[in-house]
Design a protein around this nucleic acid. Structure first.
Lengths: 127, 127
DNA sequence: CAACTAATGCGACTATGTTGCAATAATAAA
DNA sequence: TTTATTATTGCAACATAGTCGCATTAGTTG
C-alpha cells in the first residue's frame, strides 16, 4: 500500500539514494547505515518505496536485488527499459540513461524487460 | 576445473537439460530429480558444467540463478548475448535465439550483457 | 495532548547457496 | 581382473538474502 507516514528511517534511506545516483542492494544500504537500522526495516522500506514508484528494482548478475531512484520514463505502447550497469572494478551499480525499446518478438507478449551490463566504468577506465 | 569423470549423476542432469530446451534453477532441477540427488551435488555439477562451457547461467528477475545448455555463439569483437524469457503464466524459462549485439556505449567498456524478458509465451497465449 | 494505528525492532524462520570431511565410486595402472 | 588413486558424493553445518508474527514505539489526526 506504500508509504503513509514520514519517518526518520524513511528520510534516512531516501537521503542516501538522493546523495548519489548509485543503485544499492538492501545489504549495501544496511552497511551504509552502519547497521543503525533494523535489517527488516530496510527491506520493508525498500519495498514500500518501490510500491510508491519512488524506487525501482532489478536483479544483478549475482542474483542480488538492487534498488535505485525511479527516473521519469517514456510512455508508449512498446515495452521499454533502461539498462543497468555494474563496474567490475569498483563494483558500483548505476542506471544508464538510454532507454531501450523492445518491439514485439516472435509471437510472445513481452511485458517486462531487464538489461544488465557489466564492464568498466568511465572513471575506472581512466585510472 | 570442470569435469573429469562421467558419473551417473552427471548423466542424469545432462539428460534432463537435453530432454527439453528449458532453463532450470538448481531447485527446479532438484525437484525434477525427486530429491534423489544431494542438493550440494546438484550445485557442484551445475558449476562444473558451466566451467566446461556445456551450460551457461543467468539471473532471473527474481534473483534466482538459472542454467541452460550453451548454444553455439557468434563470435566477434562486440559483446553479444541472447535474451532469456520467462512466461508469467507457465513460469517456464527459455533462451531466445536472436542474438543481441551491444555496441560500445558512452565511454564504458562493456564486457558482459544480460537481457531478461517476462511476458506470455506462444503456447500460453493460444490457450 | 489523547487516541489511533503505521512503522519499528526483535527473533524466528525460509530459501538459496557454500564448504569441510569422511565414504564411495570412476578411472588408470599393474 | 584386481588394485591403487583420487574425483565425486552425501552429510551436516554454515552463510547469505530475504520474510513474517508480534509486542512496542512513534507519527498523525482530531
Amino acid at each position: 500500500m506504500g508509504i503513509l507516514r514520514k519517518t526518520k528511517n524513511l528520510e534516512t534511506i531516501l537521503d542516501i539514494f538522493r546523495q548519489s545516483n548509485e543503485a544499492l542492494s538492501a545489504n549495501l544500504l544496511f552497511e551504509r547505515l552502519h547497521e543503525r537500522m533494523n535489517r527488516s526495516t530496510v527491506y520493508r522500506l525498500l519495498e514500500r518505496l518501490e510500491d510508491d514508484g519512488i524506487l525501482h528494482s532489478f536483479a544483478s548478475m549475482d542474483n542480488v536485488k538492487f534498488y535505485a531512484l525511479r527516473q521519469d520514463c517514456i510512455s508508449s505502447g512498446d515495452v521499454h527499459s533502461h539498462p543497468h550497469f555494474q563496474c567490475t572494478t569498483c563494483n558500483q551499480v548505476v542506471c544508464l540513461e538510454q532507454e531501450v525499446v523492445f518491439p514485439t518478438l516472435n509471437r510472445m507478449r513481452i511485458e517486462e524487460a531487464q538489461i544488465f551490463l557489466k564492464g568498466q566504468c568511465n572513471s575506472c577506465l581512466s585510472q
